[in-house]
């Protein structure tokens, strides 16, 4: 479904700040894979997601979604296939626009923006139905500005927006990291529901090892711009935190006593 072949990305090439963020990375996701991504700070997790989303172009390699080569496509064109939730709850929504307007914008992802009404009556009813299961009361606040919502509410809304058009690929970049633990847990459960409802192919970065183990059917660990561990199926189900730490220590030069270093 997603096929990444030998991509590389170096920032600030030729300067003292040169940083190889991704080095010859290849990754293939199967249809319906829900992959959690862990790795220490600077391991290249976000860089990988940005490379796929098209925040900038990679230096080399290719990225295919289904049979479409998206390697050179600008971000807004890739959005046709990709739904995305950022770490910062402020980034995924337009604060000065209403809840329903945000949803309407998202439901036209990948389509031409015409001179037709930006939102129709039937859409409003649809959105209210979609928001009800969140139990956040947002269905009664369709014409509230998103800027008035809490971080958790905004992230839940962003999640809904990212999945409203059933993307071929869902990218979640530590989307619960900025939330308090209880809210983070809620948003994560909602993520799991939305992903399994449509069996969306998903890449989810998390700073929490336990979440990486509990969610998804496959786990990859990154270090210094490479994937150093790829665990799926039965093996992942049996995985414990301690095993993960041991395997990380065996594979990298860094020593981990706990999952501290994997935080963020």
């Amino acid at each position: 479904m997603l096929r990444i072949t030998d991509i590389a990305k170096t920032f600030n090439r030729g300067t003292v700040n040169e940083k190889v963020a991704i080095a010859d990375l290849s990754l293939t996701l199967n249809d319906g894979d829900f992959v959690t991504v862990i790795g220490s700070n600077g391991a290249g997790k976000s860089t990988l997601l940005n490379a796929i989303a098209g925040t900038w172009l990679t230096d080399s390699g290719s990225i295919m979604i289904d049979d479409i080569d998206i390697t050179r496509l600008p971000e807004y064109k890739r959005a046709k296939y990709i739904g995305r939730v950022f770490q910062d709850p402020l980034m995924g929504t337009a604060a000065d626009m209403w809840i329903e307007e945000n949803l309407a914008l998202a439901s036209r992802r990948g389509e031409r923006r015409r001179l037709l009404p930006g939102i129709t009556r039937s859409e409003r009813a649809e959105y209210a139905e979609m928001l009800k299961p969140l139990n956040l009361g947002l269905e009664n606040r369709l014409t509230s500005k998103v800027g008035l919502l809490s971080g958790g509410q905004r992230q839940a809304l962003t999640l809904l927006m990212a999945t409203i058009k059933k993307p071929r690929l869902l990218l979640l970049d530590e989307h619960t990291a900025a939330l308090d633990p209880a809210t983070a847990d809620k948003v994560l459960k909602l993520t799991d529901e939305l992903v399994s409802k449509d069996s969306l192919t998903t890449l989810m970065i998390t700073h929490n090892m336990q979440d990486a183990i509990d969610y998804g059917n496959r786990l990859i660990m990154m270090n210094e711009g490479r994937i150093i561990l790829d665990i799926a199926g039965e093996e992942k189900k049996q995985l414990t935190k301690q095993q993960l730490i041991d395997r990380f220590n065996a594979l990298s030069d860094q020593k981990l006593e706990s999952d501290d270093v994997l935080l963020s």
């Binding site: 989303a53 971000e75 807004y76 064109k77 959005a79 046709k80 990709i82 995305r84 950022f86 402020l90 980034m91 995924g92 929504t93 337009a94 604060a95 000065d96 626009m97 914008l105 998202a106 036209r108 992802r109 990948g110 389509e111 923006r113 927006m161």
Partner: peptide, 11 residues
């Protein structure tokens, strides 16, 4: 309002 949001929604 938010150009990052706009781009990620295909604008």
């Amino acid at each position: 309002n938010n150009s990052a949001m706009a781009k990620s929604n295909g604008i």
